[in-house]
Design a binder for these strands. Structure first.
Lengths: 324, 324
DNA sequence: CTGAAAGCGCTTACAG
DNA sequence: CTGAAAGCGCTTACAG
């Protein structure tokens, strides 16, 4: 039998109204009443039915997702985070609508808008402000609640992992466009290498397209121009896949001759790909949280979600350093 | 004011129960009563509230989506169809769960399962049959309701479009794996070329990986081996993007020297890409329909959704044929 | 701080 | 074939 609010109320000896209040964190509940109810809920493993909540709430929450014009909606990363967002909203039974790039004709009432960081973010925030719609952002901005992966820390982790494997000639492939995440990943990587105890190292940084083909071309051209790195850190897994493709075409053995480390954690992209993984479910969870909180005009919060290195077959010890 | 079932009932002069019955297509409604209600619904632009339906339905429908082990869940195509499916289920307020490759440990009751065609489809159908779970398939199979794009017809359309532009040396890039859709696209393409009034043509067919990189390599190698087609038909847009990348690297002008036509209609993948477009929203709609109908043990149906050629900048008239 | 009650928009036995 | 009524699982004024 599905366990409902009524059952909780019965076992806790209170009314369903009170149970509802504790579920929704209303302040008007006595501390010990709250404790009792919470205890019963936990004991029974109760979870509110999102469908019922949505139906009974007078004003339904609908969240708009506003994707920038430049965002590649077909990229694997976007794919994964999009699914995570939808799943999150499904759990909360929140309606969502994907907003067109041009918001002008949208008449529908939006309770809040979730955005990805994009070039014209300031303009977008102004638009929302004008319409009085609160929002949250996946990315960085001082004037709005944000959530982002720890790009800088991830860059450091990448460096540390490669250093631990003895790598001494590092290449960083990243995107030509000035994305904050790309800047941060490169900065973290560079900083950690500079601080290396075994002697300060500076990576070669090459910039190009962020897709598989971009990574392919960067890697191929770098190799043909004589670059012979021991370790390669790519700003995205897509670029890493491209780089691996180029290395394969060039007959370079991975990881024997060179190690490759990606960023994002989309290991399904390539069997055995090592990557600095984002915690995408957490990012999605926080993002929806922030957007929903923004409806209540909560304080602006900035959340940084940790990343971690996923080991893989593309990572190995560095080849020996030639005697100087 | 939101328009509800009660308002319809009032204006149609019937009870809400009756309105509900016509909404749900129950047979026990008089023909003219049904007509009246339908008319009022249309006049008011009424749409049932999916949340309310879901809540009041005694047994909630939950649809499982069972993705094959070999399916690339990060591909743009999968991406798009997945989103279309979720949107469809959102509209119907149907719960959905993504099923693990191994169904054995799944205890949750599934009302129906939606699958993509995959290598071990027979085995999967047997599993469902054993568990008494109905299903539907995106792809082809005689024993279950299916929906698929018109792959064969799309192959023909591709040929006809290229012939109309005067192309006379055709290359078809496709996947090495024996997917039914790939077989059908190639078959339609080949058949239409063979029937060409200006004289029967046979395309060169090259097989490789289905990704961007696969298309890149096939195209590059073909060109380096001396192939000089006037028109190229790729079995997927991803391959087309790869082929375009290779042509760019080789300094071949598109469409002046060679035309490229993809398949799927994911034009966001590459600005100006011409493609035989699938009607993905319709496919998703039909798929969810079939799965839901399967719950009622409806007859097996096979639906083929039409495709159409999307023009684009990668398509142009063929270069002149050298005198023989 | 808390309870009793109405209501969200639909569906579905139960009668007739 | 159709209506009246109960109910899905919650939330929220309204009283107290």
């Amino acid at each position: 039998m599905k366990i409902t609010i009524g059952e909780i109320a019965r076992q806790a000896g209170v009314s369903t109204g009170t149970v509802s209040r504790v579920i929704n964190g209303k302040p008007t509940v006595a501390t010990d009443t709250r404790a009792t109810v919470l205890a019963v809920m936990k004991k029974l493993g109760y979870e509110p039915d999102p469908v019922a909540r949505e139906l009974s709430r007078r004003t339904k929450h609908t969240l708009g997702i506003w994707v920038g014009a430049g965002e590649n909606r077909l990229s694997p990363y976007f794919n994964v985070i999009w699914r995570a967002l939808l799943r999150e909203m499904q759990v909360r039974a929140t309606q969502f609508v994907e907003l067109p790039v041009d918001l002008t004709p949208v008449r529908r009432k939006l309770d809040a808008v979730l955005m990805f960081h994009c070039a014209d973010i300031d303009q977008r925030l102004a638009t929302l402000w004008r319409r009085g719609v609160p929002g949250a952002l996946i990315g960085h901005h001082p004037n709005i609640s944000c959530v982002a992966p720890d790009d800088m820390g991830g860059g450091r982790l990448a460096a540390e992992r490669l250093l631990a494997l003895g790598h001494w000639d590092l290449l960083h492939l990243t995107v030509a466009d000035e994305h904050q995440w790309a800047v941060d990943r490169a900065a973290g990587f560079t900083a950690a290498l500079a601080e290396h105890r075994g002697g300060s190292l500076a990576p070669t940084i090459l910039r190009g397209g962020g897709s598989v083909l971009g990574g392919y071309r960067l890697m191929r051209d770098a190799w043909l121009q004589g670059h012979r790195p021991t370790g390669i850190f790519c700003a995205t897994d897509e670029m890493a896949v491209g780089a691996l493709g180029a290395l394969a075409d060039l007959g370079v053995a991975v990881p024997e001759q060179v190690s490759v480390l990606g960023f994002d954690g989309l290991v399904d992209l390539y069997p055995g790909l090592a990557s600095v993984a984002q915690d995408i479910p957490s990012i999605a969870h926080e993002a929806v949280n922030l957007a929903l909180n923004a409806i209540e005009r909560d304080a602006i919060r900035h959340v940084i979600v940790p990343v971690q290195v996923l080991e893989g077959a593309t990572l190995g010890p560095a080849r020996a350093r030639p005697a100087r």
